[in-house]
């Protein structure tokens, strides 16, 4: 269920915590297996993480459903997480999110027909001086404009 490569990555995290405290690595373990699974989690993966870290499965489920960054349904290859919180809102994020939805013909929370992109409205991502902004993968995109969004979308494959 969990690939050897993923196990190696998880083990790096496990090594950071005291012996017997491997459950400290659960958030990263979920992140790693989610990434490997194309961006979302399944019950089987959560079970596998629970087994690997010797945790009760429900405890893994609690973590997986508590934190925002886990997806429980399939997502697009790229997830555009668009901040709509106050600093971004004051700088026009709502208008840009509408633009994005229109351009991709996709509602927030949904996947584009080609399954390439899904769009999610999120709360503050901590880059308010660069508002409006969004996150795609590990990358932040700041000071967004319609033009900048066009360029970013063109770069997504």
């Amino acid at each position: 269920m969990i690939s050897d490569q993923a196990k190696k990555e998880i083990d790096i995290w496990v090594a950071k915590y005291p012996e017997g405290r491997q459950s400290s690595a659960v958030m990263q373990a979920l992140t790693i297996v989610q990434k490997e699974n194309g961006g979302s989690l399944t019950n089987e993966l959560k079970q596998a993480v629970a087994d690997y870290l010797e945790m009760p499965t429900i405890s893994v489920e609690e973590v997986a459903t508590f934190y925002e960054n886990y997806n429980h349904k399939p997502v697009g290859k790229h997830v555009i997480r668009f901040c709509h919180n106050i600093s971004c809102m004051l700088n026009g994020s709502d208008e840009l999110i509408s633009y994005l939805e229109e351009k991709l013909d996709v509602k927030t929370g949904e996947i584009s027909k080609d399954r390439l992109v899904s769009v999610k409205r999120v709360e503050c991502l901590g880059a308010c001086v660069g508002a409006p902004m969004c996150q795609i993968g590990d990358q932040y995109y700041e000071n967004l404009t319609k033009k900048r969004i066009d360029e970013i979308l063109d770069g997504l494959k």
Binding site: N43, K46, P56, T57, I58, S59, E61, E62, T65, F66
Partner: peptide
């Protein structure tokens, strides 16, 4: 001594349930 029920989700979606 068996962790079966948990509180999943958060905020007002907090839900008391087992994994399966």
């Amino acid at each position: 001594g068996i962790v079966e029920m948990g509180a999943t989700g958060r905020g007002e979606d907090l839900k008391i349930e087992p994994f399966l």
